[in-house]
Design a protein around this nucleic acid. Structure first.
Lengths: 238, 238
DNA sequence: CATAGTATCCTTGTATCCAAGTAGCAAGCG
DNA sequence: CGCTTGCTACTTGGATACAAGGATACTATG
């Protein structure tokens, strides 16, 4: 049982992290790093030396390297051989592509899920929306984003294509990092309304309307991005 | 300069492979293995011992492990700790998801590319179709599949979303492995016709028609799969 | 003072060694 | 005969040692 405190010079991860030596270490390092990056606790451009991570988790370089390579494939870190590894800067094109993939796939999933829509499915999803409302009351943004994810995932499950959700999840990551950068709290109640409107349309049997509402819903996050008064340009590429 | 011949007991890769020690070894091992798996030269279920790969490429386990981990994330190999690594069996659900992702994303890309369609773009794509016709004449299936890929990729480029193509490429892999299993040659000339029909619709300015034609075109590969008289069930999961 | 050269420390890439878990088989016991 | 038990030969996961390239700061030289 080891704690990732690290000394001050290596204080990249403020979170204290308990390592479970019985489970694969590389997977745990990967999860911890990914979470820190997506939650913007590791800001773009931060150098991530393999050795510094080793010290913080008190493990060898092997699992750390495995974790970094995975993150590199997902575009969250950039590895420059013989130079260093860095939290990747946000690339506008990445976010646009991320949004494109997510939006089109989710709309297609809803279309399929809507073909055999039932009251039970509607009820289950409305329960999730209730949880989200509760999350807002408690001002728990992390929990909200988690249940929001659950809401969207249910369309994939109801469409019988859970595998597609994995594709969406990995594609989503650049976008999620961006959400954290914006700090979304103001829009949260509106998200609820939009979720409910989608379910209402599905309950009426109007799948096309639901699909369009979902498309608009996902676009809302994006327009915020388009009309962004960027102050801190350092987190962006170029 | 090393050749991946290996002794008879390790003859997993029939291809002779020259290793360039100046470039990253792990990347080369990854490419070689991926190609062998997708081209069905490594049949599903084949055990891939890290050590056997080491002997064949005459490198250490470290880069081999990195390559196998990448392949594992793409679903091309299954790693069972302390048991072994195997070329993954084809999972029907994977193929369905693969097709779903590819079809929806490509149709969306065509929709965007069709918005500012020009004669130059049409010409460039018709050139690719010409190359494909040539590939058929020369009976070069490998070349055909490559230029076919190029044809579809151009929609991503013209839509200004090359990043999306990477998503499609990784998602496509289970499907591509399946093409090789079927042995598609009979349908190749029809593919040409369908490509030309899509371009014709775009030239007429009828994007919706082009999109539907593309959807049908991609479905064709899939119906072959649905009505498959499977003889060799051993390559499938379960 | 400016600049070219160099030494050193940093980085990641690769090789090798050890640990731990699994499967198969064979010997021994009930 | 059937079951158990332990040995053996494998596997991958992790730790450590070594190699090689890049960045930087310092030094010597023009």
């Amino acid at each position: 049982m080891l704690t990732a405190s690290g000394n001050d010079s290596d204080a990249l991860l403020s979170i204290s992290f308990k390592l479970d030596r019985r489970r694969p270490v590389s997977e745990q390092v990967y999860s911890a790093l990914r979470q820190s990056i997506v939650q913007f606790k590791l800001v773009p451009g931060t150098p991530i030396s393999e050795n510094s991570i080793c010290r913080q988790f008190d493990v060898s370089r092997t699992p750390v390297r495995a974790a970094l390579q995975r993150l590199s494939e997902e575009g969250l870190v950039d590895i420059y051989p013989q130079q260093g590894t860095f939290v990747s800067k946000i690339r506008i094109d990445d976010i646009k592509d991320s949004h494109f993939v997510r939006r089109n796939l989710e709309m297609a999933l809803l279309r399929e899920a809507g073909r055999d829509w039932t009251k039970e499915k509607s009820k289950a999803m409305r329960d999730v929306v209730d949880i989200q409302a509760n999350d807002i009351k408690r001002n728990d943004v992390d929990a909200f984003l988690l249940s929001d994810e659950r809401f969207h995932q249910l369309f994939a499950i109801y469409a019988g294509r859970e595998g597609v959700w994995n594709v969406i999840m990995t594609a989503k990551m650049p976008m999620m990092r961006f959400y954290r950068f914006l700090g979304t709290p103001r829009r949260l109640p509106i998200v609820l309304e939009e979720h409910l409107a989608i379910l209402d349309a599905l309950d009426r049997g109007n799948v096309d309307a639901a699909e369009n509402l979902l498309g608009a819903h996902l676009n809302q996050n994006f327009v915020v991005f388009e009309s962004l008064p960027v102050k801190d340009r350092s987190v962006f590429a170029e």
